[in-house]
Design a protein around this nucleic acid. Structure first.
Lengths: 201, 201
DNA sequence: GCATCATGTTGTCACTGACTACTTCCAGTC
DNA sequence: GACTGGAAGTAGTCAGTGACAACATGATGC
């Protein structure tokens, strides 16, 4: 009964199934055994690709960071004013966070575990770095007050945007739509960061 | 060998042990069985107090929210300028979040699960409400621009502060101390919210 | 002094993750 | 075209886990 013996691409299949499961039922509920059943494969087959549950979660988190970083890089690369790009990058982050709430939680949890892999830690810094670069660039171009440390500004901006996402997924937005909350936050950040009027329009 | 038969206060003991365990090893690693062993009690004794693992986590989260809300209420109640109180409340939140990182994660996870108890959901709104009240009050007193919706302002402020905490626990602060990051965020928020100069000093 | 009930106890069940030993398929080599 | 070695899957087993059922203990109120 080796109906699905050589599964061709079990690793990818497992990752996809795992992500769907995490999205639906949370990280806790994820079981290698169940995953194997879903993939029509024996309960120990996944071990070939993922030593244990933790390894699968790590891979899931890494994949998540890579997708997030790509989305943010794309947003930052769209041509336009600093204002527009800032808005786009914030929106990209929040969109990803809301669409992949459970995954994002996993990503941060896994990343700051003691023995997280280098690749994971590195990928985890990607989105923050995108923010720093955008702001430093804007500062150099005079679209942002030059006085403040760009890393510091990016940190605060990133924190604020991440916070909006966290509130959104935590169902604390209380009627306010995600887009509205994001816009309000971006408005506030732009106001505080001190964009010149000409750069904003 | 009923050395510890009537344990007097097993419930509290379990909660304390559970919290320590979560703090040290994360939520995933928490096991009722291990908890029972730590408390010198049979493996099924905890069931008297917590129907299942989930119930224990719920209780842990509820307790966490109550402590957090108390800390924030205390901070908001300290006399002083709006600036000082705002700073105090933000600091209270971040301090709690950093000191109880894993617990805070649990709190948000548990709270937005489909069948979260009313008490839990209610407690979960407490900290945000504290922020709304402070801002509405300051607006009435003229320390904050009256134009903006206080709920909206509080939401953004809360998001930003929560974001700082998330970054801190996610080890993304990159050398910047938690206090510095919090201060920078509060500065930015106060600047954007439009506190009058007199109210700030 | 006795019934009641909360708070424990032991025993058992199915499920999970990890491990070891095996089978099957494929690709390269002589 | 048979032989070999490795990659990918299989089966079986083990200890640990959460849940449950049946029973024991001891404090409390009448």
């Amino acid at each position: 009964m080796s109906a699905a013996y050589h599964h061709e691409n079990l690793r990818e299949t497992l990752l996809e199934l795992a992500e769907r499961s995490v999205q639906r039922s949370g990280v806790e509920a994820l079981s290698l055994r169940q995953l194997a059943r879903d993939a029509n494969v024996s309960h120990a087959a996944p071990a070939r690709h993922f030593r244990d549950r933790r390894a699968l979660l790590d891979a899931l988190a890494l994949d998540g960071f890579q997708r997030l970083n790509r989305a943010m890089a794309d947003a930052a690369a769209t041509p336009g004013t600093f204002d527009a790009r800032f808005r786009a990058i914030a929106s990209a982050y929040v969109t990803f966070a809301v669409d992949n709430a459970a995954l994002l939680g996993l990503m941060y949890t896994v990343k700051h575990e003691a023995d997280a892999s280098d690749a994971l830690v590195e990928a985890g810094r990607g989105s923050l770095r995108a923010a720093v670069e955008l702001i430093a660039e804007a500062q150099a171009a005079g679209a942002v007050t030059a006085g403040d440390d760009p890393e510091r500004l990016a940190l605060v901006a990133f924190a604020s945007v991440h916070g909006v996402a966290a509130l959104a997924t935590g169902d604390l937005l209380d009627g306010v739509s995600v887009a509205e909350a994001t816009d309000a936050t971006v408005d506030l950040l732009l106001r505080a960061i001190g964009v010149t009027q000409t750069a904003r329009d």
